[in-house]
Design a protein around this nucleic acid. Structure first.
Length: 420
RNA sequence: GUGGCUGUAGUUCAGCUGGCAGAGCACAGGAUUGUGGCUCCUGGUGUCGUGGGUUCAAAUCCCAUCAGCCACCCCA
């Protein structure tokens, strides 16, 4: 009696029929990052729990209820990484990297209730530009994000930007919100009453109609920015305009991680359902210092591959070609079989993806297998070919075939390859 | 963490008020043992998600549990 195992809730297998799609998304991200002169960084999947608690913020939902925290055998507290920025900044500090443009891709973990576009182990791409506080960099990072999505063929998304200012203006604004909402406490939903204390900005996002009416006349973040922050935001918009990036200013954008300052942005696709954020990011000028480095500014974003895939599929976009062999061998008889084994090996060493199913019996079954494999070329070896030291090369798409001397295999295949 | 819906073959699902577990697709083999795709024929013991309960009898009714989906929440 063998035990059947199931994978944990909120995780999933990426099967061969899908893995090439993921590979494609990763390839395009790499290429886009290359264009902007970013370099890949790979950090561990788990780190000191404290790193995330301090940087992401210990009042945030991520830290309060979504982290996978565990102790190792020596009772050190670790967490499966819930996001990518803190580890990258940690590595930046630990390795004394100079001003850096870094990108990463990999699994993140959050103990959330699974839903469409939301998993407990999910895969992100992201990047960080550490070392500059020039507003052009904000625009460039946003441009890269947009560039990536457009390279994939996506069009139906919208970019929303906001400024949350520095810590001082953030605090002033939170207080203003509390003052504005507190006379109406009794009219708010339970969630909103919690938000008043925990994160007043979330009040603006509430979807319940009775709460929504207050959002309209609520104080606006942008009015609480100090001159410096306001000027910075203007410059970011200036560079976005110059680059030709379309955006909407949405003063209600709130990022869920505590370390953000100034620029905050999101790219949304409303066709995705409840989890409509394709990607999100912002500036984090205090984070490097907080993690133990010098006072170095930074900005970055991260997006989820799952939602990207959903969006691509929804729009009928291509993920490149599904991998398949170019050549498939068909052999009849024992001598031919041995000859086929040699030819297969020869083709592979030549760099031509080739397959051969030695288990298949009849000629017909082998032809079926060749057809199903997607190979454009079948090489047939039987008694006649053995006798004459030839090979029959068949173009599976045209249905045509020719018999060539066994030594001319390479030329013949290259010729067919060019035709298709 | 909260709510709603759903778990039957590899997959999509049917199985009405309890009475022998089914279909399409996919897959495999075959239709004068050297030619694929189209067509036709043949092939199913599958823990009916899991555990318990009711009953002569449970895929079907009840409870619990796990999982999936969708929404809340949150965010990628």
């Amino acid at each position: 009696m063998s035990q059947r195992y199931k994978i944990p809730r909120g995780t999933y297998d990426i099967l061969p029929q899908d893995s090439y799609k993921r590979q494609y998304l990763m390839d395009v991200f790499r290429r886009t990052a290359d264009l902007y002169n970013y370099r890949e960084i790979v950090t561990p999947m788990f780190e000191s729990a404290d790193l995330f608690e301090r940087s992401v913020g210990d009042t945030s939902d991520i830290v309060q209820k979504e982290m996978y925290v565990f102790e190792d055998r020596k009772e050190r507290r670790f967490a499966l990484r819930p996001e990518g920025t803190a580890p990258v900044v940690r590595s930046f500090v630990e390795n004394g990297l100079p001003g850096s443009r870094l990108y990463y891709m990999g699994a993140m973990f959050r103990y959330d209730r699974p839903q469409k576009g939301r998993y407990r182990q999910f895969y992100q791409y992201g990047l960080e530009a550490i070392g500059s506080a020039h507003p052009y960099i904000d625009a460039e990072v946003i441009a890269l994000a947009v560039h990536y999505l457009e390279s994939l063929g996506l069009k139906d998304f919208r970019l929303e930007i906001n400024s949350v200012g520095g810590p001082a203006s953030a605090e002033a604004y939170n207080q203003a919100l509390k003052d504005y909402y507190s006379p109406h406490v009794d009219e708010l939903c339970e969630d909103c009453r919690n938000r008043m204390e925990k994160n007043p900005r979330r009040l603006l996002d509430c979807k319940i109609p009775t709460c929504k009416v207050f959002a309209k006349d609520a104080p606006v973040m942008l009015d609480y920015l100090d001159d410096q922050a306001r000027e910075y935001f203007e410059k970011v918009k200036f560079y976005l305009d110059e680059i030709g990036i379309e955006y909407h200013v949405n003063p209600h954008i709130v990022r869920g991680l505590d370390y953000y300052t100034d620029t905050a942005f999101e790219i949304l696709d409303d066709s995705l359902g409840a989890q409509n954020a394709l990607l999100g990011g912002g500036r984090y000028n205090g984070l490097v210092e907080q993690i133990g480095g010098k006072d170095v500014p930074g900005i970055g974003f991260a997006g989820g591959f799952e939602r990207l895939t959903l969006s691509m599929e929804k729009n009928g976009l291509s993920f490149g070609d599904e991998p398949h062999p170019e050549v498939f061998l068909v052999a009849m008889g024992e001598t031919a079989e041995v000859q086929a084994v040699k030819v297969v090996n020869q083709l592979r060493l030549m760099g031509i993806p080739t397959d051969f199913d030695i288990e298949k019996g009849s000629f017909k079954s082998q032809m079926k297998a060749a057809n199903k494999s997607g190979a454009g070329i079948a090489i047939i070896i039987g008694d006649d070919e053995i006798k004459n030291n030839t090979l029959t090369i068949k173009d599976m798409r045209q249905g045509t075939q020719e018999t060539v001397s066994a030594g001319d295999i390479k030329e013949s295949i290259l010729k067919l390859r060019e035709q298709s």
